[in-house]
């Protein structure tokens, strides 16, 4: 199967083609490793867990941001075009710069803020209210798909903020809403983030829900 990969060596950017013998059940990540180990050792990409939980391997496959390790080669159209994520600066080949991404994450105070002490109880219902939003693996797919993320917070930090706001153990909701009130209005509801999220977290919905909360919160002031 033919792969077209977007290369960048620090100065020059170009397409390169590779032919990879495909086996049943092969993922795009395995194909990338095949290329690196057999055809061109200079190909750079990130990967770690190869089971869709670490978030290292997001790239654009045929235009859509996806996890390379979770994408079956057999389900793709030939030639398979692989490019680095959009809205990130490319360091090398498929490797993009995530420093800014994690800095944005920090802005929303993504940790449990809690002054009370003593035993904590949380019922399964309370857990369910926020649980799915804890599943964000911070792969950057949503940021790549969003047409406005480059100049604003983007979807990922908002999901994190929502996850803590909805946690019954948390006492920092107001702080976070205050921070979000500066950022949350940039969204244009393109909802592309929800389309590409590999964990189906629906960031677009979360943003809209939080807008209403930020609004309610600001009105009280």
């Amino acid at each position: 199967m033919r792969f077209k990969i977007r290369r960048f060596d620090g100065e020059r950017s170009y397409w390169q083609e590779f032919d990879v013998p495909v086996k049943r059940g092969m993922t795009v990540l395995e194909a990338l490793y095949y290329i690196k180990e057999n055809l061109d050792p200079t190909l750079s990409f990130r990967a770690s867990c190869r089971m869709g939980v670490c978030g290292s391997c997001a790239v654009r496959i045929n235009g859509k941001p996806r996890l390379a390790c979770e994408t079956q080669v057999s389900k793709l159209k030939e030639p398979v075009k692989i490019e680095p994520l959009k809205n990130f600066n490319v360091i090398r080949d498929l490797v993009t710069d995530f420093e800014g991404f994690f800095k944005k994450h920090e802005i929303v105070k993504p940790y449990l803020i809690r002054k009370s002490e003593g035993e904590i109880r949380q019922t399964p219902e309370q857990l369910k209210r926020y649980y799915i939003y804890t599943l964000c693996i911070k792969c950057g797919a949503c940021m790549s798909a969003c047409p406005v993320a480059k100049n604003c917070l983007g979807p990922m930090p908002v999901v994190s903020a929502y996850r803590f706001n909805e946690d019954s153990r948390d006492e920092g909701k107001e702080e976070r809403l205050k921070i979000l009130s500066d950022h949350i209005w940039h969204c244009h509801f393109v909802a592309e983030c929800s389309e590409v999220c590999p964990k189906d977290l629906n960031p677009a919905e979360v943003i809209q829900k939080l807008r209403l909360e930020v609004l309610k919160f600001s009105m009280r002031w």
Binding site: Y111, L112, R114, E117, I120, R121, Q122, T123, P124, Q126, L127, Y130, Y131, T134, F164, D167, R169, D170
Partner: peptide, 18 residues
């Protein structure tokens, strides 16, 4: 385990919240 609970780890729970 309890420390992580206070730091926000979403442990699975029994019906009474433990």
């Amino acid at each position: 385990i309890l420390t992580l609970d206070a730091w926000g780890c979403p442990w699975s729970r029994t019906p009474d919240g433990r």
